[in-house]
Amino acid sequence: MLSINPIPAFSDNYIWHLTRGGEHWVVDPGDAAPVIETLAGESLDGILITHHHLDHTGGIAALRARYQCPVLGPGSIDGVTQPLQSGDRLEILGLPLEVMDVPGHTLDHLALLLREPTDQGEKLHLFCGDTLFAAGCGRLFEGTPAQMHASLSKLGSLPPETRVYCAHEYTLANLRFAAAAEPGNVAVTNRLAEVQALRADDKITLPSTIGAELATNPFMRCHIPAVARRAAGQAGMDSADEVEVFARLRQWKDNF
């Protein structure tokens, strides 16, 4: 049975720890120390990387030196032993893994979709780094609004029950922005209350689901007239197409 658990790192990062059949993999280990502590003497069988930022890659060298494990991710990253690109299909933990390119936050950003067969059908697990956050998305450090909007649209086309494992605990701040961007959205109001309760107990707010993001994430709701009007009002302009709405939302959020 597949187990997926967060390893907290730095102030708000999560390194995802995947185990099945005695194998151990981690996603985006920005720091080696908490991974080594979590493994508690077990071996590490592999590392998955979504993009090149140091808080996602900083532990690669130490983990490879200790465990001699493969590192799968964008070929632009030092330490990657098996470069991945969009459309690749491979197997880890005895399960199929699909690679999707999702530029915007960075140009080399990948998302990784793990398929887990179950008695009820199939569970989908999405490791999306800093492209899609719970109720938000990453800043545009390298890509364009059009690229990020297309990447989010691609992820939004996955089945609504797909579990979303992003890499930061940003949910509360993101939902506060979502409430400002779409104040009439009851789903946002309800989710904000739930997340406030979780964070008051210092509990993780992840994973999310694609369905929850489509209902509450303003960056995935640029087609909603109320969101477009709010974004236009912040920019002092009339409503525009979805990419322009996204760009205005992202600029607003950057200064929120």
Rank of each mutant, 00 (worst) to 15 (best):
L2K: 00
P6R: 13
I7M: 06
I7W: 07
P8D: 08
P8L: 01
N13T: 10
L18M: 03
T19E: 14
V26R: 07
D28H: 13
A33P: 04
E37V: 11
T38P: 00
E42G: 04
S43F: 09
G46W: 14
L48W: 02
I49G: 02
H53Q: 12
L54Q: 14
T57W: 08
A61N: 06
L63C: 05
G75T: 08
I77M: 06
G79P: 09
P83S: 01
L84I: 11
S86K: 13
D88T: 13
E91D: 12
E91V: 12
L93Y: 03
L95G: 01
D101Y: 01
H105P: 03
T106I: 02
L107T: 10
L110W: 05
A111D: 06
L112K: 06
L114R: 08
R115K: 10
D119K: 15
Q120A: 15
L124C: 02
H125P: 04
L126E: 00
F127M: 04
A134R: 12
A135T: 11
G136V: 04
F141H: 13
E142K: 09
P145S: 08
A150V: 06
K154S: 08
S157M: 13
P160H: 14
E161R: 01
C166F: 05
F177S: 05
A181V: 00
N185F: 10
V188C: 08
A197I: 00
R199C: 07
A200I: 01
D202S: 10
I204D: 03
T209Q: 05
L214R: 15
L214E: 03
T216Y: 07
T216E: 10
I224F: 07
A226T: 10
V227D: 02
V227A: 02
A228W: 06
A235V: 03
G236I: 07
G236K: 11
M237Y: 08
V243C: 07
V243D: 03
E244L: 03
V245F: 00
F246W: 14
L249A: 03
R250M: 13
